[in-house]
Design a protein around this nucleic acid. Sequence first.
DNA 1: TTGAAAGCGCTAACAA
DNA 2: TTGTTAGCGCTTTCAA
Lengths: 354, 354
Amino acid sequence: MVDKNIRIKDIAKLAGVSVGTVDRVLHNRGRVSPEALKKVTEVMEQIDYKPNLIARTLGSNKNYRIAALLPDPKQDPYWAQSNLGITQAQTEWAQYGIQVELFLFDLLDKNSFQKMAHEVYLAKPDGILIAPIFYHEALPIFELFRETDIPYVLFNTNIPEASPLSFIGQNLYQSGRVGAELLYFGQHQPGTLAVLHIDEDIHDSVHLLEKEKGFREYFKDKGKINFSIIDFILNPKDPSFQKQLEELLEDPALRGIFVSTSKGTSVTASLLEKHGKKDIRLVGYDILDENLRYLKSGIIDFLINQNPKRQASLGISHLVNHLMFKKGTPGTDLFPLEVITQQNVDSYLGSGIH
Amino acid sequence: MVDKNIRIKDIAKLAGVSVGTVDRVLHNRGRVSPEALKKVTEVMEQIDYKPNLIARTLGSNKNYRIAALLPDPKQDPYWAQSNLGITQAQTEWAQYGIQVELFLFDLLDKNSFQKMAHEVYLAKPDGILIAPIFYHEALPIFELFRETDIPYVLFNTNIPEASPLSFIGQNLYQSGRVGAELLYFGQHQPGTLAVLHIDEDIHDSVHLLEKEKGFREYFKDKGKINFSIIDFILNPKDPSFQKQLEELLEDPALRGIFVSTSKGTSVTASLLEKHGKKDIRLVGYDILDENLRYLKSGIIDFLINQNPKRQASLGISHLVNHLMFKKGTPGTDLFPLEVITQQNVDSYLGSGIH
DNA sequence: TTGAAAGCGCTAACAA
DNA sequence: TTGTTAGCGCTTTCAA
């Protein structure tokens, strides 16, 4: 009533041109005389024109195909969550002509990543969501994508050189600091703190070392502390894996363990449980079913939630916003480092929107 | 391409009627013959019709007025945050013909609440967002709202008897349990734990007592513990307020304090700082500027984030979804009980979307 | 009770 | 380089 929203039509009238011309200026599709361009831009600057995105979407009755490249959800519950997020976004956007095609690769096989990335390229989608967990193999892929001008969004792992449309994930360095904080909090007895990187492959090493760096620098900043910090990179497939871990647990000075992967968290927890070591503090990652059990039983003290589901679903949304609504997306979307405890975990399991 | 979405037109064709009839059935606007009704419903049951909400919104070119009833943001930084969330939602939806009118009342004055609630009623908006912090005064208001069939959404404080369109907030009982958990965590020395309800009025008593109940039951569930729990209801306007607090701090056995209000948190922190009591653990509420400083300096150990900004903005969105998109909204939307620490607080300050 | 048709704001094809 | 116009899927008015 008060102030009817300004329409393209109004701008056209004010500038003395047709809606077609305004539209062309709006989307700089060219084929506009300098005079017309000038007049329209002048009007636009005076009026704070906000396009009606709803009408825009309906008008340009387009279908978009989005390719999602990520590890096989069957291999790892963490990636199963990511996959869930994609499925969720898919059903949400399906009615607006957005199709999401999955391209899954083997979490442990760089070649498979390369192969699937190539298939994404061949599929020529309108947008790409990608978890570039293999740094070196990913770089040339981005070259390809850029050549074809297909917008791509990174999630989970950041590769700034990729200059993506946007990155969705967490500040891993800070994540390590949070881990350190939680491990240190209220600990008065001197002793040993351990950092465990448990993974079947070291592909994520950058990922993990970033966390470790944050962890260590937290203590460096603290100045003099009572703890010695040791770290391990362990492969659960390694025959000596179990033994190495058990040796660690033997250490009577061991006060706490920070595990940098979600899978490793439950593995460590199960050992801690077996050995009845309830007094060793354990901080790990993610609200996976396996971890949930140990959190509830008190073996795990804190989880840092990476929210893989929401990372993925937001990734799709970013692409949709870009493709459909031509909306600008933030270059990086850093998720909060959610601290999960026995008492607040249920409040996170509820809606899943937040 | 593969499966074009089904349109009303398609249903009409299949049922051998016109789109007008289908629309009337869809929204049971009546004036449809039993035969037509039958045919259309039959087709509808066969096909999983999902209306295009975008087209619907554009088609019914309506404007909606939403009234927001909440305490004056100038009185309290917590409510300033809520107000921010409303402003945010307002600008987001303005272009689609949604207008939000603010109705502010005095946080300390029940009469002012009643008066403004009545003004909301007289304004006859299309939807209402309300923070019903005065329980007894709110009940008759809801009667009024229901009479006029205006949908209303509660936030911050739940009143189940109000049977609102939806409630947005937190599980306060569980919130108290989280507070207890954080206060207890890693505490080995026996001593005293204090629960502080600091507020200028006791209007929120239900609110606060719910938190206290959770706090106490946490320890009850724990069984034998080393702590005695004491609690206070304090009014900062009371001349003896300062003295009462200082007396509490004198207690050498005091190990930790749980403050149930966001404002009270900073008040307590400032006293703790003044007395140089860094060893007393402090758990409070919300990422307000005042609290932020004390969190960073280590006086406050944990904050439980109630996310007032997002509560409010989501409240508006719920109403919009209901009014504009005729989308179903969840009856209650319980926010996660976010644990904020020195190390993760920045990750929360960033985007604000999450 | 029904169907036809105009219109929501924008896009995009087309003719001029 | 321009303006005109026919949609997009749905709502809503109006005449039949």
